[in-house]
Structure formats: structure tokens, C-alpha cells
Design a protein around this nucleic acid. Structure first.
Length: 423
RNA sequence: GCGGCUAUGGCGAAGUGGUUAACGCACCAGAUUGUGGCUCUGGCAUGCGUGGGUUCGAUUCCCACUAGUCGCCCCA
């Protein structure tokens, strides 16, 4: 009997995991600079939270959730995204009453969606996301977008495209929705089946259709931007002003729609334009969700955030040929030969480690030559060689692997010697 | 959820309806009885994703399943 990893999941092994650590560390560091604090919520929640939060007409809820009944008869769902849970926690812990507003949070963790896997799409994937709750200042929209761009740019990604749009407020959206229905209704049969279904459910999505994108009705379709009321228009203009001030280049795409129900006003997406990146180019998606806190049972509170996938970020790095500055070097490898020396080596390695030095030794009972080879493979900077001769003289031979030079060092000052040599 | 392609050692990759399944990398050992990166020599899959079927015989043909991959849908 042998086992296979579940579909759409992956093991992140040594050699690969360092990249994750690097990226996650960078994300945390950037959040610290922007004054966002980490929040950790459970990996599963009551199903109802996502029905309300994400929206029960969305694809995520309708066909992609990992939902099950627990032993107590509760309906539980593995979180498919992060925002609903953060908002739940915000409300449950009454963070709206905190002195510091807006409340600025971030999270990094696995999300689960039952989808058909392909490049850049998994059933378990890791999202890094931020949420700013409690401010209606367009400057916070710009800040959130800037934070996301900062993450990518700090890693050296160049082939990025930021697309923004405004979905308007409830009033604007309603007007636009009606205009869309009026526009398409008469000739809806000319569009694809999916679009025909969308007309009733969510006519905005028709604009996003890839099949019908060249249909003449698309070009003449009413743009959301023409239906924004005064307030929404001003808000969107402000966001753009701030982005420009921050030196962030963007494109306005009135057809950009987000897949989750809770968005309004600012919506944005960051895409990779790297060659051969495949069908899935979206690296990051986000937007404003002013009604969500109330929907989850809290007071009327503004909110904006984004989520990005670490998997896609790493794929973008690879597509652009960017190598992360990761070093897996070992400081000192202790080679021992002979029983006495082997015993001593155990203590020496221990002493090095106590001193904060990355140290390793042989556990395969290999010969000197093979131990040296192992040290070389581990990219050890120094190798300390201990045999009977050295033991007798109470010294140890320390070899610089780069230069090949070898020095006799008194055993008593060995750790100190290595420590100094490494500086 | 729909359609196409793929599945051989740790990795890459050839191959055939019939005794021993190329090769490269990696790994192990030796040449060098205490010194790595180069070189040379030798070793390393009772096994060809899993389960059935066809056949005297299948890694090779057929079916199902599983997984990956590309595209659609959707999305991070």
C-alpha cells in the first residue's frame, strides 16, 4: 500500500521551502512598515459565515467549498478565502471599538477550494492578504494597493500590470445593472449560454466574458464608469490621484469585475505579463467592501483589502527568471576519524551550535574523503578535521574550503577561532 | 464541472507484444590505508502510475481509476 498526496495539494520540500520563508518574511516586514498587524484565524469556520460573507451566488460558494458536518452536527467549511474570517473576528472581538482606527490587519495561511487544478491553481494554496477596516479615506485604498505592489517590486518583479476599476456604491451599481439588462435583453440569445444565465444573476459578469468579448454588444455596453454617482466618481478620482502621487502606474478597466459579492467602489487586480505564464495571470485581487462588516453583524464599517497567492508569486518570479538571495550554507563541518575523535566531534559540534554557528558532522560512518565530500556538498565554509594525531596534541585542523588553507588551532580555542573566521 | 495531452530508477530521458529495460545527472565504492570540487573504474529499476482485460506471453494493445499538464469556466 502506498499513498499519494491529495489532488491539487503539494509538499513544499527543503530547497523550495526557503523561498516561501523568504517571501513570507518579506511580506511581514513590509506589513510592519505599513503598520499592519498579523491576525490568525481558524482554518475552518461555520459554513454560514461564507454564505453570508462571500455571497451564496458566487462560484466559490456554489461549487468550490470544502464543506462537511462535524461530529456535533455543525456545518463546517475549510476557509476558501480570508476576508470573511477576518471580518468575523473584527466583529466578534469588537475591534471597531479599538482606539486605533482604521484597524489594519494581515494574514498568511492556507485556503481551500475544490477546483480542478492546473498551473497556478490548487485546492490548497497560501494567501497573503491585508485588510484595513474603519476608514473611508481613498488614501487607504491607495495604501493597500501600494503595499501589494511593494511586495512584488521588492522581489524584483517587473512585468506587472495593475488594473483598477470602480464598482460604485449600491445606488450606482443598481443603475448600472438596470442599464446592462436593458442593453443586452433584446439580443441576449446572440451571446453564449453562460452570459444568458448571467443576465439575471449578475449582468456585470457578462462584460468579463472571454467568449463574447468581441461581440458588438460588448463595445457598446454601458460602462459602470458612466453610472457612478457624484460621490462614487469623486472617490474613484481621488484614489487615482493618490496612486499617481505614489508613482504607481495603473490602467483603468471598466470591465474589471471581482468574483466575490462583497466588493464595491475600488476593485483592483495585479497581473503578470511575463512570457509563457499560462492562462492564469492574476497574481493579486482586492477591493473595497463597505457593506461586509454589517452583513456579518457588526456596525456599519468601511473596509478594503487584497489577497495574493504565494504560489503564483513564486511562479511569476520563475517566469521572470528572478533568483531569491537564499543561502543554505553550513558554517562548519566537523570531520572525525577514529573512535576517540568521533566522540570528541559530538561535543565540538554541540559547542559550535551553542555559539550560534551552523555546524554539522557525519552520521553515516563515512571515511574522511567522503566526509569532506559531504562537507563540500553542504557548501561548508570551514571544515574542522580531528584525528588521533590532533587529539593527542590537543589541536584541530581547520580548513577554509574556499581557499584550501589549513590551520592548526588549539582545541580549547576552536569555537572562538571559527566564530572569528566567519565574521 | 467540460475537452485535449501525458505517466518508465532520486531527477531527466530512450525503448520493445517474447530470455539480461539504453543513456545522462545524482548517489555509493575504489584508484588516493587522514583531506572536497577534476579524471578514471565499478555499483545502482525482479521494475516501466494503480487495478482489470486481450494474449501462450504485456512496460509495450484495450478499459477503468488515480495524478499531472494545457485549455474552458472561475479565481489567488
Amino acid at each position: 500500500m502506498s499513498f499519494q498526496i491529495p489532488r491539487g495539494t503539494q509538499d513544499i520540500l527543503p530547497g523550495e521551502v526557503e523561498k516561501w520563508q523568504y517571501v513570507e518574511q518579506l511580506a511581514r516586514d513590509i506589513c510592519r512598515r505599513y503598520n499592519y498587524q498579523e491576525i490568525r484565524t481558524p482554518i475552518f469556520e461555520h459554513t454560514e459565515l461564507f454564505l453570508r460573507g462571500v455571497g451564496d451566488s458566487t462560484d466559490i460558494v456554489q461549487k468550490e467549498m470544502y464543506t462537511f458536518e462535524d461530529r456535533g452536527g455543525r456545518s463546517i467549511t475549510l476557509r476558501p478565502e480570508g476576508t470573511a474570517a477576518v471580518v468575523r473576528s473584527f466583529v466578534e472581538n469588537k475591534m471597531y471599538g479599538q482606539p486605533n482606527q482604521p484597524v489594519k490587519l494581515y494574514y498568511i495561511g492556507p485556503m481551500f477550494r475544490y477546483e480542478r487544478p492546473q498551473a497556478g491553481r490548487f485546492r490548497q494554496f497560501v494567501q497573503f492578504g491585508v485588510e484595513a477596516l474603519g476608514s473611508n479615506d481613498p488614501a487607504i485604498d491607495a495604501e493597500v494597493i501600494a503595499l501589494a505592489m511593494n511586495v512584488y517590486q521588492s522581489l524584483g518583479l517587473k512585468k506587472l500590470k495593475l488594473v483598477i476599476n470602480s464598482l460604485g456604491d449600491v445606488e450606482s451599481r443598481k443603475a448600472h445593472r438596470q442599464a446592462l439588462i436593458d442593453h443586452f435583453q433584446g439580443r441576449i440569445t446572440e451571446l453564449c449560454e453562460d452570459c444568458q444565465a448571467r443576465l439575471e444573476k449578475n449582468p456585470m459578469r457578462i462584460l468579463d466574458c472571454k467568449k463574447d468579448r468581441d461581440h458588438e454588444l460588448m463595445a457598446t455596453a454601458p460602462s459602470i464608469l458612466d453610472y457612478l454617482n457624484e460621490e462614487s466618481r469623486t472617490y474613484f478620482a481621488k484614489v487615482q490621484t493618490y496612486l499617481t502621487k505614489l508613482g504607481i502606474r495603473f490602467e483603468v478597466d471598466p470591465r474589471l469585475v471581482r468574483g466575490l459579492d462583497y466588493y464595491n467602489h475600488t476593485a483592483f487586480e495585479i497581473m503578470s505579463e511575463a512570457e509563457g505564464f499560462g492562462a492564469i495571470t492574476t497574481l493579486c485581487g482586492g477591493g473595497r467592501y463597505n457593506g461586509l462588516v454589517q452583513e456579518i453583524g457588526g456596525p456599519e464599517t468601511a473596509g478594503i483589502g487584497f489577497a495574493l497567492s504565494i504560489e503564483r508569486l513564486l511562479a511569476a518570479l520563475q517566469a521572470e527568471g528572478i533568483l531569491l538571495p537564499i543561502s543554505a550554507r553550513i558554517d562548519c563541518y566537523v570531520v572525525a576519524l577514529g573512535e576517540k575523535a568521533k566522540e570528541e566531534a559530538v561535543s565540538l559540534v554541540h559547542a559550535l551550535r551553542q555559539a550560534g554557528i551552523t555546524a554539522e558532522k557525519d552520521y553515516q560512518d563515512r571515511k574522511v574523503k567522503a566526509q569532506l565530500k559531504a562537507a563540500d556538498r553542504l557548501q561548508a565554509q570551514y571544515v574542522a578535521i580531528l584525528g588521533d594525531d590532533e587529539l593527542e596534541k590537543q589541536i584541530i585542523n581547520v580548513k577554509n574550503m574556499k581557499t584550501g588553507e589549513q590551520t592548526e588551532v588549539p582545541l580549547a580555542s576552536f569555537v572562538q577561532y571559527v566564530k572569528n573566521a566567519l565574521v
